[in-house]
Write a protein that binds this DNA or RNA. Structure first.
Lengths: 202, 202
DNA sequence: CTCTCGTTGCACACCAGTGTGCATTGCACA
DNA sequence: TGTGCAATGCACACTGGTGTGCAACGAGAG
């Protein structure tokens, strides 16, 4: 049983191959973020590569998008579960979540646009578990009384979640702080407490 | 100068023609609402008409979308300016706006999806004046202290506006009330006052 | 040195949607 | 009854993106 795992191989061939593959993914995220309708050709040339090469790594456009989505879900779910395990109150947990989600939100903003149209079903299926975790957190907050009950947890979490990405889109200074306060207000946290919560964190 | 205006003619020929035209527009709104990427063929067959006929009324797909957008902007702007003229405080004005916007929001939800991708520029140009009115209202509320200042008026109005359509998408009972409270909270109105405001209205 | 294999460049077929042209049908109006 | 015109059905050309096939190149591995 030889060690054919990815990490220790590094035979300079597969390494450069993985580099191009990763660069394609990174660039695809960037290009699709500006224009969700960009084609494989646009992505390829933006990555300094030929269209044919992209198909060498991803058999179809759907595969590319799916890989992108899996990446996003993995990162975000990791953040959410980790923060969730702290045992803190739901509103404090939410603050931590947004703080750590913020750097990721802008990169993956395209998924929100890609959810409708074309790959809606595929993306929705992958985003499902994350949505569920989010709804659970909101539900927990509502049960303990720190979040209001003006909306059912599923909808409320989506609205707050969407607000984060909307604010991330219009990149303003102190966006993270603004987004955190805004979503806390949306969740029904009184303004003084919201400000106190965000100022507790460095 | 003969009266060749649309309304009083009604020569049963132009009437039936206007009917098909309006039906196409109505159905297009519905079909595009479900799938923003639907083609002229889908719209045509959903309207009980042939694709060629649609092109008889709208020279291009862009013309159709533009007409749809103009319709939406006209309706929403009318509501907003009328409510705005009441001279009431900004938060009360907002409540009236959402209450009267609600029946319209769900019908035109597609525009939010159509804004990104393809006709983004065209729609954005038409939606501009409405956005401005909205931002003005939020700005007025911030100046008089009823809305919080956690976001600049332009962004805040868009976030609140987007929340309305998001809630309209998931059609729940009492959606209008829920959307009004949610947006008021997002705007920074304290929960007790938000509830008092919505309960003042029948 | 030779072989491997990622990459390239160009070819192609395919598909879906758009927009147009034109002959035909059927209904309303004069 | 004949004319006008919206609607139809089918034709076509065009565009733009997708996915595949294949010969060639070039750098790294054995």
């Amino acid at each position: 049983m030889c060690n054919n795992a990815v990490v220790p191989t590094a035979s300079s061939r597969v390494r450069s191959m993985n580099e191009t593959r990763d660069r394609i993914l990174d660039v695809a995220l960037e290009v699709l973020g500006e224009n969700p309708d960009a084609g494989m050709g646009d992505i390829a040339s933006a990555a300094g590569v030929v269209r044919r090469t992209v198909y060498g790594h991803f058999p179809s456009r759907l595969d590319l998008v799916r890989t992108l989505t899996e990446r996003a879900v993995t990162e975000m779910t990791a953040v959410l579960t980790e923060v969730n395990a702290s045992g803190a109150e739901a509103d404090a947990t939410w603050v931590g979540f947004i703080a750590r989600l913020w750097p990721v939100a802008h990169r993956y903003r395209v998924l929100l646009a890609l959810r409708r149209g074309e790959y809606g079903d595929a993306i929705h299926g992958l985003l499902g578990p994350l949505d569920e975790l989010l709804a659970d957190l909101v539900n927990r907050g509502q049960d303990s009384g720190v979040f209001a009950r003006h909306l059912p947890p599923g909808v409320l979490s989506q609205v707050a979640y969407g607000a984060v990405f909307a604010i991330a889109d219009s990149d303003l200074p102190n966006g993270a702080r603004a987004a955190t306060i805004t979503t806390l207000l949306t969740l029904g946290v009184p303004e003084p407490r919201a400000i106190a919560l965000v100022d507790d964190r460095p």
